[in-house]
């Protein structure tokens, strides 16, 4: 008998262009585990939009809450177009609730990428550029491609007209997938070969790191790699969120140290907004993606 569980890590960093002009990081990532649900989220705020860093954070946290509360409903929903409209409407309402909201949701524009896994089921979504990848049967594959306009500096946002038409919603069974990765377009410059449509071997290494080490540590490792390596190939902000499936013999788990067990139990993660960790004493803030500048 073996035991499997998902581990999560995420990070983001301000790009060289934004550091130079003193603009905050407009990428926001979040990952969480609660009640058997594992969720990765990422949003990349639009360069033109004054408050896109706030918009990115708001849509990520709201989407996390929606998935935590409605995963089963979303998974079984038959009318996907209706579901997309409902989620977009919720996100627009959330943006309007941002403190000091200035009246134009386009000033809070961002992309959105997420995947939620519960048991052997998943619900994933993607609006705009950036990319979702997966590791399956030892191979890296693109799960959801970037959607740009005709030119490289155009894409679609949560706040775009008819955003639901560009909202790619995926539902299905995880099967033999053992890793998922979300990345913004800045990170994709280094981790995705556009011509060959191939994901970089570095992603496999990240999945392995996460399988072998505590989530908190690997979030710091990812942040360090974004800063030291990934950021060098782009001027844009860079962000990434990963989930790795770990398969263990029960004996290994019995001998594991406390930090590992906290990852296993999901108690390292926390929920956004007013939600509390399931065990406040063990709950530690690894998942919150406050932009590093």
């Amino acid at each position: 008998m073996t035991i499997t569980h998902w581990k999560i890590a995420n990070a983001q960093t301000a790009g060289r262009g934004h550091l130079k002009s003193n603009i905050p990081c407009q990428d926001y990532t979040y990952s969480m585990q609660e009640n058997g649900l594992t969720i990765l989220l990422l949003a990349d705020g639009a360069g033109y939009a004054k408050h896109s860093h706030k918009g990115a954070e708001a849509v990520v946290k709201k989407t996390a809450s929606l998935l935590a509360d409605h995963f089963d409903e979303y998974f079984t929903a038959e009318d996907d177009d209706q579901l997309k409209r409902v989620i977009i409407r919720e996100l627009h309402e959330e943006i309007k609730m941002i403190e000091g909201f200035e009246g134009d949701i386009k000033q809070y524009a961002s992309t959105l990428l997420f995947i939620a896994i519960k048991g052997d089921q998943y619900v994933a979504g993607h609006i705009g550029d950036g990319l979702i990848g997966k590791e399956q049967d030892g191979e890296l594959k693109v799960f959801s491609f970037p959607e740009n306009g005709q030119f490289v500096n155009t894409t679609f946002f949560v706040t775009s007209e008819d955003a639901w038409k560009h909202f790619r919603l995926y539902k299905g069974l995880v099967g033999t997938a053992a890793g998922f990765v979300l990345m913004s377009d800045g990170t994709a410059e280094s981790l995705f070969n556009k011509k060959e449509e191939r994901l970089a071997p570095a992603i496999t290494r990240m999945f392995e790191w996460l399988r072998d080490h505590p989530s908190q540590k690997i979030s710091a490792v990812l942040a360090n790699n974004l800063d030291a390596v990934i950021k060098e190939q782009t001027h844009d902000d860079c962000s990434i969120a990963i989930a790795s499936l770990v398969t263990l013999d029960p004996e290994v788990l019995l001998a594991a140290d406390n930090e590992y067990l906290r990852d296993f139990m999901g108690t390292h993660s926390r929920l956004p907004d007013e939600r509390k960790p399931s065990n406040p004493e063990l709950g530690q803030e690894i998942a919150d993606g406050a932009p590093s500048e």
Partner: peptide, 23 residues
């Protein structure tokens, strides 16, 4: 100080993809 050894957990350029600059 970082809670890990940066050398041990550093991606090399060979593990990345190189895309041509956008034109």
């Amino acid at each position: 100080s970082l809670p890990f050894s940066p050398e041990e957990f550093m991606i090399s350029k060979q593990e990345l993809e190189l895309n041509p600059s956008s034109r």
